[in-house]
Structure formats: structure tokens, C-alpha cells
Design a protein around this nucleic acid. Structure first.
Lengths: 193, 193
DNA sequence: GCCTGATCTTGACCAAAATCAATAGAATTT
DNA sequence: AAATTCTATTGATTTTGGTCAAGATCAGGC
């Protein structure tokens, strides 16, 4: 149990068996059915989740009622609304399962206690959020500096596994495009090579 | 010396005088004239900088030769290319001074040693990068979900002090717009109220 | 196995932003 | 003080992506 979680943890900071067992007490397993919510707009995000299995997305709804996907997650990825988790204020995001999922949850109180008592956990989390920052920065820079065609190519290179598992219109939403435009980008790219 | 640096540090984690002096050894002051580079594309980002005084920007140049501003920094803000700093690979960004600046630098080796030896530094840095992540996320979400008018309003609310010190065409660049479009957004907003 | 709903593509049309161009006012430099 | 450069605005035109609509394919539910 928690195999993927500890594998990912050990990639950043290696743990002894005792340390793994210490952390284990703070973890909670959770299963979600496809389409089930982990978090809904207005909720406070009380835990961050690592996916052992399945796929998820987070999205927000704009003033005009349109959904915009803000993130995807696959096995081994972490998902949650860090803003709400950190501030303990209601979230503006929704997170739900795209497939049946198995998760590992760390509650806010467990997280805070691990930060206080276990330096390796703080290091793990610092590295985790550094990676998240770098990935987000890459996304943001591609949005301001690349053509649509290049942005799509960059997305496909960075996340080929997402493209395989997620419908195309959701990728369009993630990129801030209409599904029709993404379809046209694809046909443009395919004919030009 | 380093007043702003320690003020910002203490806002996150409070330090004793001894701790301040311990950190002080690892810091280097630097002055930059307006238009002077802190980092150029191809350089490895060897230190992160906190601005004691002045203002800076970072930008990148796209394949078509066009500049895109990726970040601004004012007094008390931290700037640098975290991607290059972290990976020790050449940067794709340029960072230069918009006004005469006074900086505090932490080199990569100083940073690594502080992380190893001083838990409070690691906590400080974790909180710093968490804030950076949250700010970047806010920016990214506004790019995919808001109208241009709302994005501009949100920018002005979040960073009124940037708008006061930075020419408008740079704000347009930061937002990924042409200067003409930003000018038209402004006139639209001004006439409608 | 059929039906419904979801997904993707393509076309026609429209709206929004980029580009090109001209102007004028500010700020720096000499 | 004059000259040069930087900055912002406005108009005309072009390009790009969004919206609306129709049709085709596929998957899952009954």
C-alpha cells in the first residue's frame, strides 16, 4: 500500500524503513469513482492527494459559466488546490476523477505536523513544490511566447501520456482554446509533415 | 545593510540576531545601473537576488526575435531564473535593471549550504517558493479564464505599484498583448465608468 | 443489438487582436 | 535649448481564433 507514494518520495529524498513507517501513520487511502469529486468550488481543500492509480483533473468555472481545466494528474502526480490548502479559505477550483482512482491523502494537520517534526518531509515538500513551480513556469512562458502550433507540440512532447488518456477537448480547455481550434491545429501539423 | 532582505525573511520566519549574522556571511551585495544585465540568455543563473532598491524585469526572446517579459521585481521581491539555478543549465531568460538597483545575492553554493545547515533557511525558502507558485498560478488562471479587460483590471489590483513604475508597453508584453491592444483596453475601461 | 450521448472534424461567418502607419507628447541626451 | 529617443494613442487593414452548425464515428448503457 502507498507504493507509488513512497516510490515518488524516495526519488526526491531516500527514506529508511522506519521513516517510511513513521510517515505511513499520517496517510489515508481513498478511492474515487469516475466523475466523483475530490473537491468542489467553495470547499476548503483539507488534503493534498497523490494518485496511486487513475487520472484526475482540476478546473474552474469562469463568470460566463464556462469550464477551464487548470491541471491534469496521472499516477504518481500530486493534486489539490494549494492556494486553499495553504490559506484554509474556500477554493475556486473543482477537482474530479476522469477514471476510477486510488489516492493517498495527506491532511493539512498531518502535513503541518510532518513539517514540524520531520526535516526530510519538509525537504520532500520543498522539492515537490519547486517542481510544480518549474512546470507551471514552463506552461506560462509557452503561453506568452509560442505560436499555437508550437504550444501544442510542446504540450505533446512534455505530456504524451496525458494526450493518450484524456479527450482532446479537455486538452483544448487546458490550453485555453476552443475544441475546434485545437482540431484545426492538429490537422495543420499533420498535413505539414 | 540587507535591511529589506531580513525584513522579508522575518515576515516568514523570525530570526535571532545570531541567526541573522550567520546568514549574513552568505550574502553578497551588488549594485546595477539602469539597463545593466544581471543574467543573459545562455548564462547559468548562479545566484538568486533580492531587490533592496530599484526595479527589474526578466524576459525571453522568442524564435521570431520578439521579447516577452516574464516577470517584474520591485523592492523586497526575489528574482532569478529558478530553472537554471536549480538545474545549473544555461538560462533561456534575460534579467536586467529597469532602474538603478541594489541587490542582495545568494549564490548557489551558499544556498545549498544554508539548506543543509539551517532548517530555518529551508523553511524560509519553502515559503518563498510557495508564494511564487501561488502568484504564478493566479497569473496562469487569469490567462485562461478571464477576458482581457478583466485580466488587466486584475493585474492593476494585484500590482498597482508596478503600473506606476513601468512603461505601459512592458505591461502589455508581460500580459502577452501588443501595446496597441493594451492602450485600447485602457480607453475602453476608462470610458465605461 | 440498438440507441443515446460523447467526441472529433469541417465549413461558413463573425469578433477580436495583431499589424502597419501616422501622430503627438514626454523624457533624455547632447 | 535643440535634438533624439521613448512612449502612448488612434485609425485602417489583415489575420487569427471563436462561434454556430452540420455530419460522422465511436463507446457505453439499456
Amino acid at each position: 500500500m502507498y507504493d507509488v507514494f513512497f516510490q515518488k518520495f524516495n526519488e526526491k529524498i531516500s527514506l529508511t524503513e522506519q521513516e517510511e513507517n513513521f510517515i505511513r501513520q499520517y496517510l489515508t487511502p481513498k478511492k474515487l469513482r469516475k466523475r466523483q469529486y475530490l473537491l468542489q468550488e467553495g470547499d476548503i481543500c483539507k488534503s493534498i492527494a497523490l494518485l496511486e492509480k487513475g487520472s484526475m483533473r482540476s478546473y474552474l468555472v469562469d463568470p460566463a459559466g464556462q469550464e477551464h481545466i487548470t491541471a491534469f494528474a496521472l499516477e504518481g502526480w500530486t493534486i489539490g488546490d494549494l492556494s486553499s490548502f495553504h490559506s484554509e479559505l474556500p477554493s475556486t477550483q473543482n477537482i474530479d476523477a476522469l477514471e476510477d482512482c486510488e489516492l493517498v491523502l495527506i491532511s493539512k494537520s498531518a502535513h503541518d505536523e510532518l513539517l514540524r517534526t520531520m526535516p526530510k518531509y519538509e525537504t520532500y515538500f520543498r522539492l515537490l513544490i519547486t517542481d510544480a513551480y518549474l512546470a507551471l513556469q514552463k506552461r506560462t512562458l509557452s503561453m506568452i511566447s509560442l505560436s499555437l502550433d508550437d504550444r501544442y507540440k510542446a504540450f505533446m512532447e512534455s505530456y504524451p501520456n496525458i494526450a493518450q488518456r484524456v479527450p482532446q477537448h479537455m486538452i483544448a480547455s487546458y490550453m485555453g482554446l476552443s475544441p475546434e481550434t485545437l482540431s484545426r491545429i492538429r490537422s495543420r501539423i499533420n498535413t505539414s509533415k
